[in-house]
Design a protein around this nucleic acid. Sequence first.
DNA 1: AATTGATACAACCGCTCCTTT
DNA 2: CAAAGGAGCGGTTGTATCAAT
Length: 407
Amino acid sequence: MGRHSCCYKQKLRKGLWSPEEDEKLINHITKYGHGCWSSVPKLAGLQRCGKSCRLRWINYLRPDLKRGKFSQEEENLIIELHAVLGNKWSQIAARLPGRTDNEIKNLWNSSIKKKLRQKGIDPNTHKLLSEVDNEEKVSATSKNIEKASEGSSELNFIENSNYVIETEKLMDRYPNNMTSAASAPPTHEFFLNMFVTTHESSTASCNKPLDMASYLSFQQLNYGSNIGFSMNPNINNLLFNSKNSEMIPHHHFNSSITNDNILPSISNSILTSPIAAAASNNSIGTFTSSGSSTSIELQRNSSFFDGNAFSWGAADCGKSEKETETDPEDIKWSEYLHTQFLPGNTIHNHQITQDLYSEKSGIQFTTQGSLSTTTWLQNQLQQPSLQTADSYNKHFQKIPDAFGQFS
DNA sequence: AATTGATACAACCGCTCCTTT
DNA sequence: CAAAGGAGCGGTTGTATCAAT
């Protein structure tokens, strides 16, 4: 497809949007919604392509944008999410209320990347740069090593938790980079091998040859010590659905889960999360595999969990209630805008949360559960609801300000 | 005061995926 | 089933602003 069909039309404006154009677009969408984006410019009286209108609305004019500088918490969350999701900016943005993928992408490229490098962390792999160098050496060397130890999946951990990958088999499973979020997730079979081969119901902390805690030592990710990031509880509750690349709050794992889902999920979440390093010295739970399903209990059995509000535990799983999902598209725009967009109106964080998280992919966020992502996000929104309303006000203030710049 | 470089942010481009015809 | 079109995503480029020289 490539270029949008409307872009072929002549005399379409490009470049920065003028306040007049913004006003036209806002007025149009306020009254009629965007509907088909390709028809928006014509209906709104704009010499722009629909794509440009969409972008302008989503990235700048949309009323629920927070704008302003990113907080440290937001930055931390972005880093943690990036460790899991990679450059999936839209997915990252979906978990940061009021932030756009573009905004986050820009922040990452202009600021966070640099900060991470300064702290000796490779922004792509979220590993120590020195480790990445070592890996490259190991990778290069391994190509010249015969498959002497083929069949063994053991890993020898050397002092200081550095690791040596002994088997080419393992390297084959993780070409280039074991933990790169951009690379394919570890296979279902791999984690079966890693965690549940020795016992049908096994306790991770005491399994040999490779228990979970040891395996986590792979990760030298320790943002807490390396860069002083706070350990955010948010990501800890997210597991990964390998089939659609969406994260799922852990609450939903209480029911039957197939290995196809859960193992890659665990792998992605644990392998790439900053919690991994911190968790590496602790037993964090039990994996049980039976037939096609795997149950997982991640226990609060270490100081790590207590110290950092790590809430994998199944204790609150049963309490969760599935939030009623609302498709944003079902919301009548005029109503939406009149009730939420207009300055001074109180924003119902409940609805905002739904708007932000009800995606076509069907991500289901729960409203309860201690320290769950949703809870955290709700907390963000609840400080107070007026915070969001305030951002709306700021938005409206910004429009006349913008006009002022040109007058 | 003018120039240059760095930075942040806005917007565009090309692509893929999905839906519709 | 294939083609066309719409929507969205991620990478890249363009531009405004600010600080340093």
